[in-house]
Simulated assay, not measured.
Amino acid sequence: MDKYIGVMSGTSLDGIDTVLVETDGRQICLLAADGYPLPGELRARLLAAAGGQAVTMQAVGQMDAELGQLYARAVNQLLAKARVTAAEVTAIGCHGQTLWHQPEGPLPFSLQLGDGNRIAADTGILTVNDFRRMDMALGGQGAPLVPAFHKMVLGNCPHTRIVLNIGGIANISVLTPAHKVLGYDVGPGNMLMDAWCQRHTGHAYDKDAELAARGRVDTTLLNKLLGEPWFALPPPKSTGRELFNLAWLDARLPASYRVSDVQATLAELTAVAIADQVGKWPAGELLVCGGGGHNPLLMARLTALLPDWQVSTTNTAGVDMDYMEAMAFAWLAQQTVNGLPGNLPEATGARQGAVLGAIHPAPHATEDS
């Protein structure tokens, strides 16, 4: 098996996850994992742009370059931690930071920042990025891409198993013996909760759901939020910060409210949107990964809303819940390097499976260097 590195910074913008794995495409072993902070000032600029604030092309180019350098530093830190040299790694798979995801309309597109050339140059390792756009060129949503990995790593199961990733957005991969793998976004994960908490407390997220626990669910507001037409769309479907943002929430808030009640309602929105989709399938295992798996209120509500399901985290199945997505992009890089499809048309809606991503070879030393 060959060594690959996966790099992931999701829609929550809570930092950069890196993993070192060994994989042959049919099995995978996590060798090392690390986290790297996203500078607060850069995070603020990215959040503003992703939220629809006007931004210049110069600013976009600058963020692309900054993120490329940051991803490279994160990789080099991981290599030092794992005591592995760049020469031992076949490739890096880097998701990049989503600036805008627009899967519908006459010309769907998805834009991830993080210059792959800089990553390859600063690490000395071939880098694969821009994973989503080939799927979209083939008529797909470009998301979610992790169901193919979930199928490989957790698909060998005699009963229904749903893998739920709760990052900024919540998405599910449905693994059942009788059906092809399905995967799609189900609604906001941590995104709205984090944004509301940041606005009113200054904290990037609601640690241990302390703010939400002080509030009560506003059922009128909850029903208004659940009335968003996107929830009724059939899969394949995907979404992001372009829809579920504070402006979307503000337009639906009552004239008066308690901050903690809104936080509790947003947690319930995430839980109900997930449970509505999971509950469509024969009861089995619901395995949670991503940052939302650390939210005790979310986990408790999922358990209560899905009483016939065994709700736990992917840790119980042997896959680290915090590094599942980074591992997926390491695996996707392996697929690309070996000329193998990385998408599942049944999940994204693409016309066919395809090799994904743009390849940036590491520069070779020259005689003059």
Rank of each mutant, 00 (worst) to 15 (best):
D250W: 00
D320K: 00
W248Y: 07
A304M: 06
P229A: 04
A251D: 10
G279F: 02
Q310W: 07
A271E: 07
A300D: 10
E268Q: 14
P296Y: 15
V337I: 14
V319I: 12
L253I: 14
A273T: 05
G293W: 04
K237I: 08
L266W: 02
V217C: 13
K237S: 08
W281M: 13
A275G: 05
L243V: 11
E242L: 07
D320L: 11
V311N: 12
W309P: 13
V262S: 12
A275V: 04
F329E: 01
A247D: 08
F231S: 05
A271M: 04
G293L: 10
G284E: 02
L286F: 09
E268Y: 01
W281I: 00
L302C: 06
R216S: 13
V278A: 08
G279H: 01
A283Q: 10
L243Q: 07
A275Q: 03
F244C: 06
L266C: 03
S238F: 10
G290F: 11
L266V: 05
D308N: 09
L246D: 05
D320Y: 09
A304E: 09
I274C: 14
I274L: 08
S256N: 08
G292T: 13
G240I: 08
G215M: 04
L225C: 03
L221W: 09
N245W: 00
A232N: 11
G240C: 08
V272T: 10
L249I: 08
T313L: 05
A251Y: 13
E325A: 04
A267D: 07
G284T: 02
L297S: 03
D218W: 05
T303F: 00
G240L: 03
L233T: 14
M321K: 15
F244A: 11
A283D: 08
S256V: 15
D218Q: 12
V272L: 06
G318V: 11
E285P: 00
Q277H: 12
P234N: 09
P229K: 05
H294P: 04
T270R: 07
A264H: 08
K280W: 11
G290V: 06
Q263L: 02
C289K: 06
M324C: 12
G318D: 15
G318R: 11
A330T: 01
T220Q: 15
L253S: 12
T239A: 10
L249S: 13
T336S: 09
M299H: 14
G318C: 13
A271Y: 14
A273S: 08
S260N: 10
A271T: 15
G318H: 09
H294D: 13
L221Q: 11
M321V: 01
